[in-house]
Design a binder for these strands. Sequence first.
DNA 1: TGCAGTACCCACCTTTTGGTAAGCATGGCT
DNA 2: AGCCATGCTTACCAAAAGGTGGGTACTGCA
Lengths: 120, 120
Amino acid sequence: MPTKARRGPYICGIDAAMDVVSGKWKSLILWELHLHGVRRFAQLRRGLPGVSEKMLVQQLREMEEDDLVHREVFPEVPPRAEYTLTRHGTSLNEALSALGEWGAERIERIGAEKVVYAAG
Amino acid sequence: MPTKARRGPYICGIDAAMDVVSGKWKSLILWELHLHGVRRFAQLRRGLPGVSEKMLVQQLREMEEDDLVHREVFPEVPPRAEYTLTRHGTSLNEALSALGEWGAERIERIGAEKVVYAAG
DNA sequence: TGCAGTACCCACCTTTTGGTAAGCATGGCT
DNA sequence: AGCCATGCTTACCAAAAGGTGGGTACTGCA
């Protein structure tokens, strides 16, 4: 593996939480999986506007290592893989909701644009 | 200015919140200011184990631009500058508390070390 | 036959982030 | 005179994060 280490020592709880949730797509992956329950790789890809395959794999693998998502691979052809939230992934997503609301207010406050994309 | 742009377009609230709170020291700065109310530059420096002056200045400037902290400079010598949380900084800090608790549990769960440092 | 879709891996490159070390203007202390 | 402290700034580097474009093995469909 090239990068990503850490998992401590941590300065505080936020530090520890940020360690697993920072990464351009991780909170969005949590949200997608929360919304849909189960998602296949390509479905996630279509649900996240602008993500590259490499990044998606990478983030999912790290989240798997951090026990946030569960990955189930089916030995079929064409290949199939299903992703779901673990217990800890679910609770992390819940812990992020207050932050999401704060951010939504901020978007209104500063009048930022929102990304719009075709539904998948 | 060399880097840091963004402030949208955002995909969702979490995206927007992450935009302002990501950065190695920002959440810790929020916490320090929340604890003490007012802090001078050197006090913050001493309160954050391992931060460099450059980084501290940089993060504080970005947080000022994002209206999370207020900076008051007194034209004295030796120079004096005081930092406080703005309304939005305070509410952001509150929105982070659930995340902090999640992280604290994670620290216990995985048995990670915690950084210890001399009190300032 | 040839192209699309599946879920990836790999090598390479650029951008962003963070760290190190120095300097500056001023005054107090010794 | 020399050192410390204040709150910064600047230049230079290293590491991490992210992006691009290719390949794989196989099947289904036109």
